[in-house]
């Protein structure tokens, strides 16, 4: 267990400093845009940088890809098993997602409070000042993005780009078929039930209320499924 603790520390410590670099750049750009817009329009009402969490999602995606490409090689060189590498990477995703979700929750609600025109992603969907639910939702969302890209990275390494591109095309085709089915084939009642179910999974109940727990459960289940998939692939992953 000592070695597992150390490898988790390695993953977390070597990824930690880049978070602050990311935020420094992000908020410097936001500030620059705000200053330019304010100088041009003479007012702050039109400063329109909303949903900064999207940037964090992109960062999480990059982290997911690098989680495989860089860290897998480094840790396999240092004699760690795939199980240890997977657990360390998963812990790093959780650590980074947790911190970034916290920063984004505080900043999102803070910016909305001080600059009323600012909308955070969670706030725009579910409302403001549900701090814990907001943090957990963002945490699970970032984990989901990390896990998805980690799985994609592992799958590309194992099966090759071409097979993955075919799979992507097949998935796109499936989405189009499902959409067509909803519109032309499925009876209206069934289509409505499915849509109600999906909306419910994201916390939008049929009576018009919002349930904050259900989207958390949905995100958790999807992220867990992706992580299980990643574990299944990494167990057979070979260095190329």
């Amino acid at each position: 267990m000592k070695k597992l603790r150390i490898v988790i520390q390695y993953e977390c410590v070597t990824s930690f400093k880049y978070i602050w670099l990311f935020y420094a750049i992000e908020y410097a750009i936001v500030l620059l845009i705000a200053v330019v817009v304010a100088l041009c329009t003479g007012a702050m009402e039109h400063v329109g940088s909303n949903c900064l969490e999207i940037n964090t999602m992109i960062y999480a995606a990059v982290l997911g890809v690098l989680g495989f490409h860089e860290d897998f090689k480094m840790l396999i060189q240092n004699g760690f098993t795939r199980r240890y590498i997977y657990l360390a990477t998963l812990s790093m995703f959780a650590f980074i997602s947790g911190i970034m979700a916290l920063v984004d929750t505080v900043m999102g609600n803070g910016l909305h409070y001080f600059l009323n025109g600012y909308s955070s992603m969670y706030g725009a969907i579910y409302g403001y000042y549900h701090f814990f639910a907001n943090w957990l939702w963002l945490f699970l969302l970032y984990m989901l993005v990390c896990s998805l890209l980690y799985l994609v990275g592992l799958a590309v390494n194992r099966y090759g780009k071409r097979i993955l591109l075919y799979s992507g095309a097949a998935l796109l085709g499936l989405v189009l078929i499902v959409m067509a089915m909803f519109r032309y084939i499925l009876p209206g009642e069934i289509a409505r039930s499915v849509l109600n179910f999906l909306a419910g999974a994201m916390g939008f109940m049929s009576d018009g209320t919002k349930h904050l727990g259900l989207p958390l459960l949905t995100l958790f289940l999807i992220a867990a499924l992706l992580e299980l998939g990643a574990y299944a692939v990494i167990r057979r992953t070979e260095l190329r």
Binding site: T14, D71, K73, M74, I76, Q77, G79
Partner: peptide, 11 residues
């Protein structure tokens, strides 16, 4: 066991 390899695997 430790393997020093030709391929660069280090960070």
């Amino acid at each position: 066991v430790f393997c020093m390899s030709e391929t660069d695997l280090y960070d």
